Amino acid sequence: MKPMFKSLPVVAAIATLAACNSTDGIQKENYPQPVAESSISFRTAPGFNQDRIESVEKKTFRTFLKVDDSTVREIQGAKCQLRSSELSVQFVTPAHVNIPLVQDKPQPLRLTCQKGNWSSDQTLTPFIPQETAGAPYAGGGVAGILVGVAVDAALTGAVNAARNSKDVWRFVPRAKNELPIQLK
């Protein structure tokens, strides 16, 4: 029988990492805040063809304040909205939001959040993941955007406008279940 003590350093390392609530070297304080189980869905503008919505994905939006260069603190209660001429949704963080996957290129979504004197204003640009695109990327590939602190979310900025209309456009990468928003 092998002694269990050889595994003890591994268990201690895993426990330490789990306690840090850290991503990409950024320490998160006051995290995670509880999120209501229900998800908030987008509204569509009059005249928007509902058949363009292929499906939805539940994503969690959280707001953070920068404490120092290596630490952020989750802040509850920021009023946010995602809006374009086609789609809109309002929510208070933290929140689960059903993000639509859309056929035919949708308009970019403007993400604004406000809590007291702190705010954020960003754009989520629609993109087609390479694995579902009808044609190879015409641009330089996938470009990153910052939707929070040290988030390596990949959204394409150079997409050929003449794509197959059956391609499904995303606003958030499939692998990203949480979207941190940095308030300033």
Rank of each mutant, 00 (worst) to 15 (best):
M1T: 08
P3E: 05
P9T: 03
P9K: 03
V10C: 07
V10Q: 08
A12S: 12
I14Q: 04
A15W: 06
T16L: 15
T16K: 10
A18M: 13
A19K: 07
A19P: 08
N21Y: 12
N30F: 05
A36V: 11
E37H: 10
S39A: 15
I40W: 05
I40Q: 09
R43H: 10
A45V: 04
P46K: 00
P46H: 00
N49R: 07
D51W: 03
E57D: 14
K58R: 14
K58S: 12
T60M: 08
K66F: 02
V67P: 09
D68Y: 01
D69I: 05
S70L: 09
R73Q: 14
R73E: 14
E74N: 08
I75C: 05
A78H: 00
A78K: 01
K79R: 13
K79C: 09
C80A: 02
C80T: 02
R83F: 13
L87M: 09
S88R: 13
V89L: 08
H96R: 09
H96D: 07
P100K: 04
Q103H: 12
D104R: 13
L111T: 06
N117I: 14
S119C: 06
D121Q: 06
Q122H: 10
Q122Y: 06
L124N: 03
L124Q: 04
P129M: 04
A133T: 03
P136K: 01
G144M: 09
I145E: 02
I145G: 05
V149L: 05
A150K: 10
T156M: 12
G157M: 13
A161L: 12
A162N: 15
S165R: 10
R170P: 01
V172W: 03
V172P: 10
P173E: 11
N177S: 15
N177M: 15
E178W: 04
Q182L: 15
Q182G: 03
L183S: 01
